[in-house]
Amino acid sequence: MRLIQAAAVTAAVGLLTGCGGVKTTATGGEGDFPTGNIQMTVGAAPGGSTDLITRAIAEGVSKELGVSVPVVNKPGANGALNAKELQSAKPDGYKIAVQNASLFTITPLAVSANEAVKLDDFDLIGGISQDDYVLLAPAASAVKSIADLKKSGKNIKYGTTGVGTGAQLASALAFKQAAIPATDVPFDGGAPALTALLGSQIDVATIQVGDSIAQIKAKKVVPLAVFSAERIKFLPEVPTAKEQGYDVVVSQYRFLTAPKGTPDAVKTKLLDAAKKTFATEAYKKFNDDHCLTPIEGTPDEVRKILDEYATKYKAQLDQYQISLGQK
């Protein structure tokens, strides 16, 4: 009996240790980076796009650099919690994270200042990919374009993936520019919004392309517009909002970050490993499966993209007097 007790305790403690809750990372000189595990943190729960992208990259980087790259989820505050932790981590390249552009460009427009994070507090390693939004209507409705919505003359109830997301920003801008009376109905992510749309509980919804491509292909929902600058290859026949006469260009963009002050040699090494991962067939297929458009730019290009987005969004919100949330 005692033996069983002892064994049970050992097993339990061992398992917990194995699950690697609290772990220390090895550190070494810059020249021979990496000498230990590189931890990639995700500011979201398992299963979301950011999580899946991180895991795909972690797998490739691990192969390239020959060390293991555990992925740790630290969900909270749209990723702000993870960002703040990364910010204060040791800048040695052993802790890196994929982050979302919306956290820096859109969320600050919707939430209070203490939840906002600044891009300048991080070192950029490189760009990853762009995730686009599409405006959808149920197949049963006769609506085929934004103009059709205007013609219907009623107050449009539009579903979005939540407050402070690109989906909310894009829809709000589009309806304001088209002067369509509309009410924002936020959902917690793409899946519930899409479900409500399929049941015609709402008139239209703006959702990430990857989350709705199967339903679009099955003709359960009709795409009205994509909010990218140009048509995307996954939905080549769907016109952009811009083509339809509305200046709405909103995308999610993800990039690789490290704590501020990470040595250049380490960043270069990480970027090289990431680039080699991006070039693999497996990763290209991953992008296609999830309808992600690769934009694997240099840190300067990433910064430029983000700055442009941030400035443009802010200007447009002011111009059309839209508020995404109450600060």
């Binding site: 002892a6 305790v9 050992t10």
Partner: peptide
Amino acid sequence: ARWLRSTCCS
């Protein structure tokens, strides 16, 4: 002691 032993020796 038993617990310690089982934990450390494994």
